[in-house]
Design a protein around this nucleic acid. Structure first.
Lengths: 235, 235
DNA sequence: CACTTCAGTTATACCTCGTAACGAGTGCGA
DNA sequence: TCGCACTCGTTACGAGGTATAACTGAAGTG
């Protein structure tokens, strides 16, 4: 995926960077974002503090890369879902993969979808990765026939599709639809709506807000997804 | 609201505590949770560092109290919503109040619903406050007649209602229903389902994940609420 | 009026990020 | 093959954070 190592130095550098990120993820898992400390990481690897600054400009830099990696991991899981058959079955499978990844890597999910760091930054790369996650949803919702109550939202997204060529290209890439196609805004609406729908229950579950409540989080997510499928009359 | 100040010392103490929390909220607003530093707060008030430890056992302690206060503020806004008429109108008003508070105090919303701090704690008091927020939703959904697709979730909440007397009491307090009443689990399901439904779009909006997207967050929330109202066939 | 209690101070220990200045090894071109 | 440059990693340091300890002064209490 990344460019092949040109020099042995490059190779070593890349390997060390990976090792650092690995240790950072491990620390993230126990201690949250606040627990990710360069000094601790260095000690774990066997290096002394400031050495890490040869590999990452700052702690925020490291975290930013971890965000991108996490998005990539989630997108990879989503990408592997089998969409043949389409309809609500495919949607359920996508949502299940989404939640599955989040439950398996709760700290990573909180890192990318949780509270933004202090002076929150929106690295363009993250937006691209987020779109990679939602892409497969576009495919599913392209076949949707939304209820009347969806009209206002569909209208807004149709407008966006007209104004933003990047988004139009993104939708086209996953559905083959052009921006003028009537199904394009429908696909976009469905995919974007699926996001808060899933995030709602998954983030509360992962953050532990459901602890002590007498329901299975998976049932809750399934129910939310069903609402969505109904609204788009998916097969 | 709090007990009357017995001695002038008590009065002064209470006042100082409030002043500290005020400054903390101000710092939270600009700089996020990480920006809340006792030293900075002390400097702002005109005290010197360790003095604050007379009023709060630790930084986490201060944050915990801020969480409780924030829940109380949100609950107060929700409590003021006019529910006469009921049905989807009332539900929409509740959701609007929920989002209104979050948008007005984004840092506070992220504080209470965002990523839990390092070794996340679940103070019992927070649970009570969260229930105060969802209480009015119970009232609205008590009139609901859920679609068949809601059955699995309703069944799980019915079980919870049977197992947990506290929850049964909470539902009873807001609806007048007993745990055996068929409408009780329905009300509970609706209210609890409304939570992730609203949290999904509101948290993404507040965290800035919708920036650059061509839709009005309010429309998105309205759409999600409509899905929910449909599922419970609210009037 | 003496005595206790509490607010607030400075000093200190420890941890974090991040920079600076310095040594040591590697790899590359002449 | 030799030497230079580049990069890696080290220690030293400063700023800023949490939290404790020990001390001072002033308020409230009998």
């Amino acid at each position: 995926m990344s460019g092949q190592a040109r020099s042995p130095r490059e190779r070593y550098r890349e390997q060390t960077r990976a090792e650092i990120k690995e240790a950072a993820v491990r620390q993230l898992a126990q201690g949250g974002v606040e627990g990710v400390a360069l000094l601790r990481i260095a000690k774990g690897i066997g290096m002394s503090g400031p050495a890490l600054y040869r590999y990452f400009a700052s702690r925020d830099d490291l975290l930013a890369e971890m965000v991108v990696d996490a998005y990539e991991g989630l997108a990879a899981d989503i990408r592997e879902v089998d969409l043949t058959g389409g309809g609500r079955t495919a949607l359920g499978a996508l949502a299940g993969a989404f939640r599955g990844w989040a439950v398996r890597e709760p700290h990573l999910y909180l890192l990318i979808q949780g509270t933004p760091v202090p002076g929150f930054r929106a690295p363009a790369e993250s937006v691209l990765r987020a779109r990679a996650v939602l892409g497969p949803f576009l495919k599913v919702f392209a076949e949707g026939r939304p209820l009347r109550s969806m009209d206002p939202l569909v209208a807004e997204f149709a407008q966006w599709l007209r104004d933003d060529a990047d988004v139009a290209a993104w939708v086209g890439q996953w559905t083959g639809l052009s921006a003028e196609d009537a199904a394009a805004p429908v696909a976009l609406t469905g995919a974007v709506l699926a996001w808060p729908q899933m995030h709602g229950s998954v983030s509360l579950e992962v953050a532990g807000h459901f602890s002590g409540m007498g329901h299975r989080p998976a049932t809750l997510l399934d129910t939310q997804v069903t609402l969505l499928a109904d609204a788009f009359q998916l097969a």
